[in-house]
Design a protein around this nucleic acid. Sequence first.
DNA 1: TTTTGTATAATTGTATACACGAATACTCAA
DNA 2: TTGAGTATTCGTGTATACAATTATACAAAA
Lengths: 221, 221
Amino acid sequence: MEEYQEHSLGGRVFQRIREDILNGKYKEHDELRENTLGKELGVSRTPVREALRQLELEGLVTIIPNRGAYVTGITGKDIWDIYVIRSMLEGLCARWAVEHITDEQLDELEEAILLSEFQMKKTSGFNAEQVTELDGRFHSILYDASGSRMLSHLLKDFHNYVKVARKNSVVSEERARKSIREHRQILRAIRDRDADMAEQLANEHILHVMQNLKKQGFEAK
Amino acid sequence: MEEYQEHSLGGRVFQRIREDILNGKYKEHDELRENTLGKELGVSRTPVREALRQLELEGLVTIIPNRGAYVTGITGKDIWDIYVIRSMLEGLCARWAVEHITDEQLDELEEAILLSEFQMKKTSGFNAEQVTELDGRFHSILYDASGSRMLSHLLKDFHNYVKVARKNSVVSEERARKSIREHRQILRAIRDRDADMAEQLANEHILHVMQNLKKQGFEAK
DNA sequence: TTTTGTATAATTGTATACACGAATACTCAA
DNA sequence: TTGAGTATTCGTGTATACAATTATACAAAA
């Protein structure tokens, strides 16, 4: 899936429109005309069409035959729902990781945490972007470690979806520290092969992220 | 999403190839050439391309740029994993339905159950296809009743995914009866606004489906 | 025999052309 | 002015044409 996106034009158009929807450039019920989009991006209708069809599958666009494509939009409630779903599935993921994780992946998780902790220790102040990237890496490794193609695929999709909400939420130093501590606890539980604990911790980890979002005034309605 | 699939050619090609992959006509690592597929289906490359790009997003096809599209395939483990995930999310769905369901949807659920029960009472033997369709309808209504676009979308996708596994599994009369009883219990819990009970019952309902699959020799490895 | 280079064929990627359907604007009668 | 009916316009749906890339076949050199 990733392969195709990288070099091909159609793939880039897809990602671009997707970003523009998630960022709010195109708002709900906006009509997405193939010609217009193509001219804006300097490509023909063909790759645009492919992108729109894919976006429909993702639920970001609604296509009415012979009529047009319209932005479905993504509400605060949608994002909130995804977090709830994610909290359950991240728990499941951690549980499965206990059984399937490799030594190499354990090392990778350790490394991600160490790098995060290093960032937070910097006296010059931590690099928020870097910390966010490392957070993403930690979770991504965990997804792969679940040994389930389906679950991994799903969680990565979600992660992409809420990327924008995350970008908008300021990473408070306090939350960042707590988050890393929680990562470490999860890793510990997985090392100890304690499935129940791993599940519970991963579950709560997402719930804490949600609490933080709410504290920052995120609208879940 | 459904709208587009119904009338357009590209949508039908998408569903057709999807079916063929899930049914095993195209096996893992098979190359899907746009021209060949187009000729087989009597259409040009354009709708085939759109379909392949969509299938990639679903994880059924892997596209390597400038090389081709290959069937990713779906293993027994994939299906099993989906059932596990589904069991959690169906629980969540039932929980949310308790809060969001409308009177009309309650009636629709009741109707689906009544029709199922009617099928099972027929002395001439029940129509398995009909019962399966009604089962699907029951769940679909419940998905909508969750009030969550995201969850509903997700569960419908899953339902499609495992459709084939279900088709292959014989619907034993015993299991069918139990299944309908479980549906009725779920509906009862939702009517009673008992979220915990609804969640637990919906959860277990899927677990029972899984047990039945296993009993029929389904390979989850 | 193996390897490497090159020409050729096959396949994908993108753009364009044409067909079809839907929406809009217009005409003309009441 | 209003309304029905028709013409025109606009956008999508599909097919085809062309460009770019990759795979294949074959020949020449090591």
